[in-house]
Amino acid sequence: MYAVQIERLTKIYGSGATEVVALADATFDVAPGELVAILGPSGSGKTTLLTTIGLVTEPTRGRVVLDGELIVDNGWPPGLDLKRVRREKLGFIFQHHNLIPFLTTVENVMIALENNGVSTKEARARSMELLESLGLSQRLDHYPSLLSGGESQRTAIARALANRPRIILADEPTAALDTENGKNVMRLLKALAVENDSAILVVTHDHRMVEGFDRIFEVSDGRIVGERRNGSDNA
């Protein structure tokens, strides 16, 4: 069973003269534990691809199957609890880490667990453990404003991982970091894909960041224009 299947996924913003085809007929599958990069210049539709998969942007057409559950079939079915699917199956990481500014590091991770009904006490214990494994044991009670870029991103990763989601979606997670920290974050994501058997989709426009990925999709003008496996060119 695939972790992610998309079929002819299309997103058109606006209509008539202002119409923008942000994503056109994207089709691919991602297996559990697979580490996939989506590479393309700015404005090529990478974020749109990720957010339609992540149930944040409603696609105009096409299908999304997450973890075997058909979620999207030409638009969101009415009555579907998107939040439930997001909190149970998905973890998000963004360029701007999007931590909650009034929660400490450990609380930022706890909230994801509590969203899924984990008790505060257990959530705290598990979050601390997770953060410690990411090297943040000295930062547990800091507010996000006091964290470095790398620390913030690692906290966001911990939050995305807390519920052991089947699918992790990361949009330019290294863009706000220097090369060194960026590579560290990518290494971390790779290790997690293996360890948790999660499918990880990482969007980036930086070629240097994608070495060691299982598959790389190249996106241009909303279309998938190339696919490489383990560095080999299959386009």
């Binding site: 939040k83 439930r84 997001r86 998905l90 939050r159």
Partner: peptide, 14 residues
């Protein structure tokens, strides 16, 4: 913050 909370699936009640 509310958008982020929604994104990570926080219930409306919260």
């Amino acid at each position: 913050v509310i958008a982020t909370l929604k994104l990570i699936g926080t219930r409306n009640r919260v």
